[in-house]
């Protein structure tokens, strides 16, 4: 008991009493406990199992003619599948060394050069760029044009002009056979 009273009078020299230590330790453990208990609440807002279960899509490519594009839905997002013409492939390769915002070679963005598969969501703020339907504006680089804030993508889906910071994202996909892909 005498010991306790000396420590509490020694506060200034030691920089804190045993009581302070206990108070800090208790509140630290308390805060950590609350943080741990809050995690299930926070994590419950992340994608649920049923949402995650819908995360792959198979696409039959056989009806898509050269020069044609289709839009498929994967995870609630549009995915652009473009059967590129020889001219579009040549353009995309020629521009590998152009002044790119997000430099990437065309070869790194495709598995087979005639099939360009990208997520159809502008990397700026998430609008769907135009250019996948006949008659849509394709922008200045023969790819896609986002009407929301004016981003232009080229025939490899790379950002060339406008506010978007990144190229159109290539989703994970595999060729199951020559004419079928599985996205996701």
């Amino acid at each position: 008991m005498t010991d306790l009273s000396t420590t509490s009078t020694d506060e200034d020299e030691t920089g804190g009493s045993r009581r302070d230590f206990l108070a800090i330790a208790t509140s630290t453990v308390g805060v950590a406990g609350v943080a741990l208990a809050a995690w299930p609440l926070v994590d419950s807002m992340n994608p649920a199992a049923d949402v995650l279960a819908l995360s792959s899509t198979e696409v039959d490519l056989s009806p898509v003619e050269v020069g044609q594009s289709i839009t498929v839905v994967w995870r609630g997002k549009p995915v652009f599948v473009r059967h590129r013409t020889a001219h579009e492939i040549a353009e995309a390769r020629r521009d590998d060394n152009a002044d790119l915002v997000d430099p990437q070679k065309d070869a790194d963005r495709v598995q087979k050069p005639e099939w360009l598969i990208v997520i159809g969501i502008c990397t700026h703020l998430g609008c769907i760029p135009l250019g996948n339907k006949p008659g849509d504006p394709r922008g200045d680089f023969d790819g896609w044009f986002c009407p929301c804030h004016g981003s232009h993508y080229d025939s490899s889906g790379r950002i060339r002009k406008g506010p978007a910071p990144k190229n159109l994202v290539v989703p994970p996909y595999v060729f199951i056979n020559d004419t079928t892909i599985k996205i996701g």
Binding site: M45, N46, P47, S55, R75, G76, K77
Partner: peptide, 12 residues
């Protein structure tokens, strides 16, 4: 993704 509760603005 956390705000959406999925991979796009949807039911969650």
């Amino acid at each position: 993704t956390w705000l959406w509760g999925g991979f796009s603005v949807a039911n969650p």
